[in-house]
Design a binder for these strands. Structure first.
Length: 949
RNA sequence: UGGAGCGUAGCUCAGUGGCAGAGCACCGCCUUCACACGGCGGGGGUCGCUGGUUCAACCCCAGUCGCUCCAACCA
């Protein structure tokens, strides 16, 4: 048996004192380790981590996703599953390369005094540098995940560029190529001039920009180049509208709507491109919007996605006028070498000079920005590798349609379908160095392509030797390797036992922002290569924002650093906050106040446990011995001896266990969190522990019994809380006197030593036999009595130090019995001197002339049905009590009016359920009685006030 | 343009066809022997707006306004 050294509990919750040592204990004793093979009747449960960028730092989004995953994993582990949470990091092509390039640039100057670039180092040296950078930084984020408490199986940690993943990438690439699903082609793609690479559609963020809409005048000619004249003999012209005049250098057509009457006479004619002089056809296509601009548009197939489609449809030539450096290419004639923005100005100037610029107006437009660097992404034609995606998408759509994969929240399925059904081929080549180099070789002899899992020794087309072969310089999109994550990390393409045990994985938990980037692609690749979905359920959490609901960003300076919060308040309060606030379908607006509030909750748990332990040490009559049969069995055997409070808290424990389980199962973790918060604080601490002080003081059997109940409830609560707050619960659980290993996880049965940890205790299951409606009613009544007296005290600003006797009057035998039985609890909780039963209403002192109390407060209760009386002599002046009574009467009056109004309507009494009507009638009677008693009490007090003044 | 989500107390959010809830903040009283990171009490809301369904609507339906996000072919 491996155990932890437990130390005395500090006075208050101090997470810094135990978090790191507890994590170390878990990790060193193998608590996180999964087993490649489940034991009989053990379920596998697996989540693969969404791999964070290897050189990244933990932000709130990571904190949220990993908290949620850790909760699910810890919960399933406690339920006895063979649980694997697989860690790893992503090489993050562009992001990482950019970091290293930045570092190099700072280091020195290259030729001509420019900052040193990767090209000065060369590919080999640069990659060496990047690997070194990766090794230096990789530990940072994984250590941060540890600080959060993540129970990841670190022995299986993977990296998207490790040997296994790289092999999987090559395998997938080659197979898809052989199946014709990967091709190389010259097509329009998004190009980031700053990052100098192609981007996929997803990596370009459409952004609103203020722009202009210009109208340009084109001259119309016929096929022979002769001017076309209007009816009046003037030169026929066409006005087109454009937001990007500089692209006209590459225009190969103008387009109008086929039914646009303004342009019918131009069908089959040609336009002369200003500045360039090229004769281009007027094409007709229903795609053109007649309402927009002039209803005529210029077509630039090389630099606009829609125009590319049009060009393809109409067989237009593609003229690329922009280079990868973001400057006009040789095709641009006199504009060559200008940057796009410069070219625009020059083109406009020249057009104006020629009289071809007709009009300029303001126009809001969308400009695509590079996701990484925020610079404008230019559509241009380029030779790239693509995945032919449609045949991969089809089964991926079906998998969700058929329910083999379920999304939560469900409405994301709609978004998923929408995207998948309109999916475009995926550009997978990137002009970077950091990443998986494309396993394609070009032959200098025959120009053939050889695609191979390993470096080929000869050209597959002409058999030329390896010296004739040159590997493609480009690397694959980072998301290409991420798409293989669920099976590559489990050993694919080898048929490993881990793959057999854990694929398909159970749940994929991530943010909806990478639904298309990652989730959809994993589904496609998983289905294609494993023949099975990669996961059964997808849970998409919301975004973490600041307390104002704004996206956290470095530039806004509103970033809340999870590590700072962990340092200040501990990992558990942060985890609890994220859990409590992560309701489905709603952004998480994180406020530090909230974290502080839940730190107080952790402190509450801490002190409640301390209270219990204190009782243990103070036991009178020798140390308390553990029942040999165990606490749970003891409780079962002694059920009949339990008090109402005992049965009540045990009943409530079942209710909270059910809520917690339900919340976890339905991904409504906030429900689990709030159920635990309310139970632990408001029921266990505020009431049960207060009740328990009476029997604990009493000693003997009552004390023993109470310690059994309290110990049991506390220990079960720690189990229920553990998935959300692993550190503090483990620290406290280790300090408990009696612990048994309750279940036998796989690793114990493997013959390794068992570990004494809360992590492996069975997760409480609600037991209906402990549900006790009668006890819940009793305690409810008891609370009513205590609260009524506290309320009286509060409203009269009476210090708890001021004790007074309480007298009561009741015609209900059960109410009398109830008060007699619970006298001790009432005296303690309401701080009452003594409890005295009256058999008849006392007359006021003035009426009897005797020694009866001069005047009394009257408090009416319906459950229990009693009239409480508190002598006011020396406590409260009559005026104050009259005020209180009047306020009370007002409340009763309002309620009574409401109920009577309801009952007065025949439509209600006739159509509402009979039970409800009866309930309302009952309520009306009670309120009427109260009203009567209160008015009598008030009249008496007013007489008294009159008499004494 | 289409789709989704959200509008409930000063703030952040739960919530249910049957008399509106929590945390924080606020105001009283209390250093009561687990906890001042605490205890007890209190004030505070036309549940965005307008209609409809219903005996009964914060909840269901239709519309409307506002905010946020996503997908987009209006150059």
């Amino acid at each position: 048996m491996v155990s932890m050294n437990s130390t005395a509990l500090t006075k208050a919750f101090e997470p810094q004192a135990f978090e790191s040592s507890i994590y170390q204990f878990w990790q060193e004793t193998g608590c996180f380790d999964a087993s490649d093979v489940s034991v009989p009747d053990q379920q596998p449960f697996c989540i693969v981590i969404p791999p964070p960028n290897v050189t990244g730092v933990l932000h709130m989004g990571h904190a949220l996703t990993n908290t949620i995953q850790d909760i699910l994993v810890r919960w399933r582990r406690m339920k006895g599953d063979n649980t694997l949470w697989l860690p790893g990091t992503d090489h993050a092509g562009i992001a990482t390369q950019a970091q290293v390039e930045k570092a190099i640039a700072k280091e020195g100057k290259g030729p001509e005094g420019r900052p040193l670039s990767r090209h000065d180092l060369g590919r080999k040296k640069f990659l060496e540098r990047t690997w070194k950078w990766k090794e230096e930084h990789a530990g940072e984020i994984t250590n941060q995940l540890r600080r959060l408490g993540s129970s990841l199986d670190w022995k299986r940690e993977r990296f998207t560029m490790d040997e296994g993943c790289s092999r999987a990438v090559r395998e997938v690439f080659v197979r898809l190529y052989e199946e014709g699903l990967i091709y190389r082609g010259e097509r329009i793609i998004n190009w980031c001039c700053r990052c100098q690479t192609a981007l996929s559609d997803l990596e370009v963020i459409p952004t609103d920009r203020k722009g202009n809409l210009w109208q340009l005048r084109y001259r119309i000619v016929d096929a022979q180049g002769a001017p076309v004249l209007n009816a009046d003999g003037s030169q026929a012209e066409l006005l087109i509208a454009t937001t990007r005049p500089e692209t006209l250098l590459g225009d190969t057509a103008v387009a109008v709507h086929p039914e646009d009457e303004r342009y019918l006479h131009l069908h089959g004619k040609f336009a002369v491109l200003p500045l360039v002089g090229r004769k281009i056809p007027v094409i007709v296509d229903a795609y053109v919007d007649r309402e927009f601009g002039t209803g005529a548009l210029k077509v630039t197939p090389a630099h606009d996605f829609n125009d590319a489609d049009l060009g393809k449809k109409h067989g237009l030539p593609v003229i690329s006028v922009m280079g990868k450096d973001g400057r006009i290419s040789a095709e641009g004639g006199g504009y060559q070498g200008l940057k796009f923005a410069e070219a625009r100005e020059k083109v406009l100037q020249d057009l104006e000079q020629q009289g071809a610029l007709v009009k300029r107006e303001d126009h809001a437009q969308k400009v695509g920005l590079c996701q990484r660097c925020d610079s404008v992404a230019e559509p241009m034609v380029s030779k790239q590798w693509f995945v032919q995606i449609e045949s991969l998408a089809r089964p991926a759509i079906e998998a969700v349609e058929s329910g083999k994969i379920e999304f939560s929240p469900k409405n994301w399925e709609k978004t998923y379908f929408e995207w998948m059904r309109n999916i475009r081929d995926w550009c997978i080549s990137r002009q970077l160095w950091w990443g998986h180099q494309i396993p394609a070789w070009y032959c200098s002899q025959c120009e053939g392509i050889t695609v191979s899992r390993t470096t080929p020794s000869s050209c597959s087309k002409c058999q030329a030797g390896s010296s004739a072969l040159k590997q493609d310089e480009d690397v694959l999109d980072t998301w290409f390797s991420s798409a293989l994550w669920p099976f590559a990390t489990l050993g694919w393409p080898e048929k490993t036992s881990a793959l057999k045990t854990f694929y398909p994985t159970s749940i994929l938990e991530t943010g909806f922002d990478i639904l298309f980037f990652w989730v959809a692609r994993m589904i496609m690749m998983g289905l294609h290569f494993m023949g099975e979905v990669p996961f059964r359920k997808v849970y998409l959490h919301a975004m973490v924002r600041d307390e104002k609901g704004e996206k956290m960003s470095k530039s806004k300076g509103n970033v809340i650093d999870p590590l700072v919060l962990i340092g200040q308040h501990g990992a558990d309060p942060l985890r609890f906050t994220l859990t409590a606030m992560a309701g489905q379908g709603r952004d998480v607006k994180l406020s530090v106040d909230r974290v502080e509030g839940y730190r107080a909750f952790a402190n509450k748990i801490w002190n409640a446990t301390k209270f219990y332990l204190l009782q243990f040490e103070d036991a009178q009559g020798g140390p308390i011995t553990e029942p040999t049969e165990g606490v749970a069995a003891w409780l079962e055997a002694h059920r009949a001896e339990l008090s109402a409070a005992d049965r009540w808290i045990l009943s409530r424990l079942q209710a909270v266990a059910e809520s917690v389980e339900g919340g976890f199962a339905r991904f409504e973790l906030n429900e689990s969190a709030t159920a635990l918060y309310d139970f632990f604080w408001k029921e266990l601490c505020d009431w049960y522990i207060e009740f328990s002080k009476v029997p604990l003081r009493q000693g003997g059997e009552a004390r023993y019994r109470t310690l059994m109940v309290l110990g049991h409830v506390l220990e079960q609560s720690l189990r229920l809380l553990h998935p959300i707050m692993p550190f503090v619960t483990e620290a406290l659980w280790q300090a408990l006197p009696w612990k048994k290993i309750a279940n036998t996880p796989a690793r114990v049965r493997d013959g390794k030593p068992a570990v004494m940890t809360l992590m492996f205790q069975s997760f409480p299951v609600a037991q209906n036999s402990w549900r006790d409606a009668e006890a819940e009613r009793t305690i409810g009544a008891l609370r009513n009595v205590v609260e009524a007296i506290r309320n009286f005290r509060g409203e009269n600003n009476l210090s708890p130090r001021v004790e007074f006797p309480l007298r009561y009057l009741s015609t209900s035998a059960s109410a009398v019995a109830f008060l007699e039985k619970n006298e001790a609890a009432i005296l303690t909780l309401a701080r009452v001197q003594k409890l005295e039963r009256l058999t008849s209403a006392p007359a006021s002192g003035a009426e009897t002339g005797g020694s009866e109390p001069a005047f009394e407060a009257v408090i009416l209760l319906t459950d229990p049905a009693v009239e409480l009386r508190i002598s006011l002599a020396g406590l409260v002046n009559v005026g104050e009590e009259i005020k209180r009574l009047k306020k009370e009467m007002e409340r009763v009056k309002d309620d009574l009016d409401f109920v009577r109004g309801k009952l007065a309507k025949e439509s209600f009494t006739a159509k509402a359920p009979a039970a409800l009507v009866e309930k309302e009638r009952q309520r009306e009677r009670e309120l009427a009685d109260q009203w009567k008693d209160l008015s009598q009490g008030l009249a008496r007090l007013e007489r008294m006030a009159g008499g004494t003044s």
